[in-house]
């Protein structure tokens, strides 16, 4: 697999929880607990999970907004944490950009669109004013906005238009990877398809890689090449998007899919049984022993509450579940 752009290896992020006047550490919130993933050139990886599953923390780690507790991030085979400050500024930050969830807060309200889009260019390049000006107009055109909108302020746009501006800003430096943190969840349903299509077109045009953070499975299915399902800081199932959606292995994945209106006409099983999960996700401060999902799992067996499951590879999918420990059980529980 020579085509890997970014690889995360055993990423963990623990937040210390302190108590009292002396800031005594009484425990750790295990926001991200040993996840690994790879993003290929021109492909999309989605991290999916409930709130608190750790997907945003993982994205922040990739953007270097959070320092990981342990683990390595390899960018084109090089350890990002071993980059010097100047290497980061020239080789990493300009090539990894992001589009944030909320287009209402991700732009400085005092700046004109022209300056918002130009910001990465001003900070990272030595382009002249004229070069920047023409690049901004080019970018506006690419995301489907007109050049005369460059002098407006962000509040004069709709949510969809603002998200287009955010995409233009992310593309300004010709990045290799764009982290999309819930890129459409703040938008009206009618606008989502437009933005997703725009993102897909741009991906093809520039061979961009995307790391998508999402909880909406329809978005994920439309955008992704591969998917990682996260639960309580861990990846419970990881694989190619279509295979994973057609034949989800982990009980949690199945519950997620059954809870969303997602089935396409070509899907074999139109009457997927609804699986309703009970209860809340346990606290990441004190995760349950064994399999972290066993407290809510409808198919839990004895071993689940005692031994953490290992990763099993089944077809193109990797799954962390005791149901697949014995190859014989596999066929029985896949439905």
């Amino acid at each position: 697999m020579a085509d890997i752009l970014l690889e995360g290896r055993e990423l963990t992020k623990y937040y210390p929880v302190t108590k009292g006047l002396l800031q005594r550490v009484i425990g750790y919130v295990r926001a991200v607990d040993g996840i690994s993933f790879t993003i290929e050139h021109g492909k999309t990886l989605s991290l999916v999970g409930e709130s608190g599953a750790g997907k945003t923390t993982a994205a922040k780690a990739v953007l270097l907004l959070e320092r990981l507790t342990s683990g390595t991030i390899l960018f084109e085979g090089k350890d990002v944490y071993k980059f010097s400050k100047s290497q980061l500024k020239t080789q990493y930050r300009p090539r990894v950009q992001s589009v944030q969830q909320n287009p209402w807060s991700s732009m400085n309200p005092r700046m004109r669109v022209r300056d918002i889009i130009a910001e990465p260019l001003v900070v990272n390049t030595k382009k002249t004013k004229e070069e920047i000006r023409s690049r901004v107009l080019e970018l506006l055109d690419q995301v489907g906005l007109s050049p005369d909108q460059a002098d407006y302020y962000p509040h004069e746009f709709s949510g969809g238009q603002r998200q287009r501006i955010a995409v233009a800003r992310a593309l300004a430096l010709n990045p290799s990877l764009v982290v999309l943190d819930e890129p459409v969840s703040a938008l009206d349903v009618s606008i989502r398809a437009q933005i997703m299509n725009l993102l897909k077109d741009l991906q093809e045009q520039y061979n961009l890689s995307y790391l998508v953070i999402a909880h909406n499975l329809a978005t994920v299915r439309f955008m992704s090449h591969s998917v990682a399902i996260m639960y309580l800081g861990q990846i419970v199932e990881y694989g190619e998007a279509e295979a994973l959606f057609l034949k989800p292995l982990h009980p949690y994945t199945r519950a997620l899919i059954s809870a969303s209106i997602l089935t396409l006409p070509e899907d074999e099983d139109q009457n997927v049984q609804k699986i309703i999960l009970s209860g809340e996700m346990p606290s990441p401060l004190n995760p349950p022993p064994g399999c972290r999902f066993h407290t809510r799992c409808s198919e839990a067996i004895d071993i689940c509450s005692k031994v953490p499951p290992e990763v099993r590879t089944i077809g193109t999918q990797q799954v962390k579940c005791h149901l697949y420990d014995d190859p014989g059980v596999q066929s029985a529980s896949s439905k």
């Binding site: 907004l65 990465p120 900070v123």
Partner: peptide, 20 residues
């Protein structure tokens, strides 16, 4: 705020963030 985080992702210096 999100837009300050965005500026940091872009690699803007502390000076620039405070001033602009």
């Amino acid at each position: 705020s999100d837009f300050v985080a965005q500026a940091r992702i872009n690699g803007a210096s502390a000076w620039r963030i405070m001033l602009i």
